[in-house]
Design a protein around this nucleic acid. Structure first.
Lengths: 145, 145
DNA sequence: CCTTGACCTCAACTTAGCTTGAGGTTGCAT
DNA sequence: ATGCAACCTCAAGCTAAGTTGAGGTCAAGG
């Protein structure tokens, strides 16, 4: 502990498992907003450990950094998130998970129905057509996630 | 129908919904292997329609082109895949789906357990630690899937 | 025969999420 | 006072999965 409660970028990296460059990158993206010392070095609040942990979890669930930033608008910089903050934000995530599971269940069902038919007919195959639900707003596979 | 059974790249694009450039790109990656005319234009077999459909489906399920190529090693070029081919290959996909669903179920469970606790403790939070299973073999979030 | 749309190659650009490197500064311990 | 690890910025590079564009060729109908 360095007397005051501020963390250097290296400290934060060690605490979160992120690389220093990744943390700087997240700052660029507006996900953390450290202060600066007189000599221009970053100094983070302890609450930023939680912010970054949250980012890691959300990323894990397939949210993009842009989506995470959006979701974190509700989380004030400079304060450790409370149970209420967390609950509010977790709704987004919960929905995301539910949707993903539902989609996968459907695909699995279709796949089981398809095994053995070997059709892959562009017109009839449920699996193939399932794609259209994803493929909205694009001409080709551009899905990328 | 152009007398013979060969398709131009444009035909194939129309039949699959892919763009011409995407099909060329897939050829680069070794996913299709068209013949050439005397004038160096590509000519595809009808069976390539199915190959490409398969790629679309697999991509949909989150497989990368590299993984798809791997899975398709079992599918001979120049023959329309049979039900048996399809079945063999679909095992890979089925496993993939099962794994994904299981992971999401676990995360959802953890999330439900976590809502209200607001912990996000790096040491204790099940959600955070769930990440380690993903995060193998890397120092930071590089998941990118 | 000739026109014209479809095709060819190759190189460069795109987005997301970072990493790596060059060249320079800070700050803490001795 | 000084050494040196850790910090700084900015630019360039990386991967995936394609797209876009320039400059040029092919082939089929009229």
């Amino acid at each position: 502990m360095k007397a005051n409660d501020l963390l250097t970028i290296g400290d934060l990296a060690r605490r979160t498992g992120l690389s220093v460059s990744a943390i700087r990158f997240y700052e660029d993206k507006g996900l953390v907003e450290p202060m600066r010392t007189g000599g221009n070095q970053r100094r983070f609040l302890r609450s930023d450990i939680r912010r970054l942990s949250f980012i890691l979890i959300a990323q894990n669930l397939g949210l993009s950094l842009a989506e995470i930033e959006e979701a974190m608008k509700g989380l004030p910089h400079g304060r450790t998130p409370t149970a209420a903050d967390w609950k509010r934000i977790s709704v987004t995530i919960r929905q995301r998970i539910d949707t993903q599971i539902a989609q996968l269940d459907k695909v699995r069902e279709d796949l089981d129905g398809c095994i053995g038919c070997g059709c892959l007919s562009l017109k009839k195959c449920a699996l193939y057509n399932a794609q259209d639900k994803w493929g909205e707003s694009g001409k080709g596979p551009r899905v990328l996630r």
